[in-house]
């Protein structure tokens, strides 16, 4: 019998798959920019969550500081992918759009894993920070705003 956590992980996995492959299956959509940013923050968070879980199932001693440097690089990479210019170039092509979503999940996964490898629960902290960045971008990153 499946345990309860496994059930919720499965639900999460299905949601991620739907979000990742949605554009390829359903065609190009045009969500508002803020929603698009939040959607990517969700993908990062989900990827981060799975990265943390994987790292916890394979516990190792206090990691090398190199993990920490990788984590910072990944945070910056996630933000570069959130540039609306990237969205503009990618969104018209559903398969590319799906690949972009997959990239967010991948960055989240690797980031969560590397941070958790550095030190226990750091993966959770990193995932929250990246989600925070996603939420901050949703407040106006790449939007001209009503006052211009």
């Amino acid at each position: 019998m499946r345990s309860k956590p496994s059930f919720w992980y499965s639900v999460l996995a299905v949601l991620i798959l739907l979000d990742v492959f949605g554009p390829a299956l359903l065609g190009a959509g045009d969500p508002p920019l803020w929603l698009h940013h939040l959607e990517h923050a969700f993908l990062l968070a989900a990827g981060g969550g799975f990265g943390v879980l994987y790292a916890r199932r394979h516990p190792k001693p206090y990691g090398d500081p190199g993990w920490l440097f990788a984590v910072i690089g990944l945070s910056a990479a996630s933000l570069l992918l959130m540039l609306p210019d990237v969205y503009g170039n990618v969104d018209a092509f559903p398969v590319l759009h799906s690949l972009l979503h997959l990239a967010f999940v991948g960055i989240g996964y690797v980031g969560g894993y590397t941070a958790e490898r550095y030190s226990p629960r750091s993966g959770v902290a990193w995932t929250l920070i990246v989600v925070m960045m996603g939420v901050i971008t949703a407040t106006g990153f790449g939007a001209p705003g009503p006052h211009v």
């Binding site: 933000l79 540039l83 790449g142 939007a143 705003g145 009503p146 211009v148």
Partner: peptide
């Protein structure tokens, strides 16, 4: 990153407020 994007691409929109 927003300011760097504006520097690299002058059309990058930024809400001043």
């Amino acid at each position: 990153v927003a300011l760097l994007a504006r520097w690299a691409s002058p059309t990058f929109p930024i809400d001043p407020l």
